[in-house]
Write a protein that binds this DNA or RNA. Structure first.
Length: 340
DNA sequence: AAAGACACCAACCGCTGTTAT
DNA sequence: AATAACAGCGGTTGGTGTCTT
């Protein structure tokens, strides 16, 4: 059986909100809250609107501390970095920009930022960037975004071997050895600063071909997502000697925490592998259990990780770098962060 | 001045995940 | 376990203002 509509479509008003409707909604919510039930709210508030419409109006426009107007350069950078790392997950991006809503950021990206980046890209790459897809095409951050400073390298890009368009860039991936950054370095900018602990590997969370990425961001709960909740997102990975795998932690900043771990059962972490090879365990409520990038299957992810060539092993030596590899990586990072 | 093109952004739509029964 | 109700998300649309010809 199909799902029942949330409201009587014929008897609800659509289109722009009038000031009267705004004040009714605002007054009601300030007085009684949402009661956790948006569907029932419009009737109680005396509005002929769909509950979803009320929710959107409140979250995107009426709720306190909404920031309107120009985005700052800092916000631009953050959006670009996050988009590069996690794609169009606007609510997560919004959570890192206090006062901004996902809708705002989405609009800003689609109307301005994307063009801004295109304008800054080399002419041969000026093609509208596409959203990350199953084949991992990504927009190219502008030079200015890549030349911020090395601490901003939460997303690394390298041109694909033969690229012909703006969107043929992939994040340089993989786990970035900590010593490429200073200990206790703040990696992200703006409000999403965090400290890197020793022995922690850092890269971005989104998974792209040939390599795994990892992103940790957002140490401070902020209240900017469109759902009005405070979000703290910390996709993190700690690699212990006895454990090669992916784990992370997602918290909404309040009562809920979501952990995930994708562990790769390789008891022997050398390049040749060992017993128990290729055994993956997916734990629920993680990036994979929660909302994997839409086009990624677990198999894709396995493939990405196992095929990581950047560390010099064919398959299974996740996260380990030889000196030479580290040098290469460092070169790439330096190149992209300082010289690009 | 008028018409068309373009840009912006609020709002909508449809889908998915979660929760309650 | 199945179903319904709901919240939330991301992509798209449509109205309006601005710019260009």
């Amino acid at each position: 059986m199909g799902r029942a509509p949330c409201c009587d479509k014929a008897n609800v008003k659509k289109g722009p909100w009038s000031p009267e409707e705004d004040s009714k909604l605002k007054e009601y919510i300030e007085k009684y809250g949402t009661g956790g039930n948006w569907i029932a709210l419009p009737q109680k508030a005396g509005l002929k609107r769909c509950g979803k419409s009320c929710r959107l109006r409140w979250l995107n426009y009426l709720r306190p501390n909404i920031k309107h107007g120009e985005f700052t350069d800092e916000e631009d950078r953050l959006i670009c970095n996050l988009f590069a790392s996690i794609g169009s997950r606007w609510s997560i991006i919004a959570a890192q920009l206090p006062g901004r809503t996902d809708n705002d950021i989405k609009n800003y990206w689609n109307t301005k930022l994307k063009k801004k980046l295109m304008a800054m890209a080399p002419p041969s790459h000026r093609k509208p960037p596409s959203f990350p897809s199953s084949h991992q095409t990504l927009p190219l951050p502008s030079q200015s975004f890549l030349s911020l400073n090395k601490l901003d390298c939460t997303s690394y890009y390298t041109p694909a071997k033969s690229f012909s368009s703006f969107d043929s860039f992939e994040p340089i991936s993989s786990n970035i050895p900590l010593h490429l950054l200073n200990n206790n370095t703040c990696v992200a900018t703006s409000s999403s600063q965090f400290q890197i602990q020793e022995n922690q590997l850092v890269s971005s969370m989104q998974y792209y071909p040939m390599k795994e990425n990892f992103l940790t961001f957002g140490s401070e709960p902020s209240c900017s997502s469109s759902d009005g909740s405070c979000s703290q997102i910390s996709y993190g990975r700690e690699v212990k000697q006895e454990e090669m795998g992916f784990q992370g932690y997602y918290s909404n900043g309040f009562e809920e925490n979501h952990k995930f771990m994708l562990s790769y059962g390789n008891s022997n972490s050398n390049c040749n592998g060992g017993e128990n090879l290729n055994q993956w365990t997916e734990k629920p409520n993680g990036y994979f259990g929660e909302t994997p990038p839409s086009d990624y299957t677990l198999e894709d992810v396995k493939q990405l990780i196992s095929c990581s060539s950047i560390n010099g092993c064919n398959n299974d030596n996740i996260g380990l770098f030889s000196d030479a590899d580290e040098n290469k990586m460092q070169e790439k990072i330096m190149y992209h962060c300082f010289n690009y």
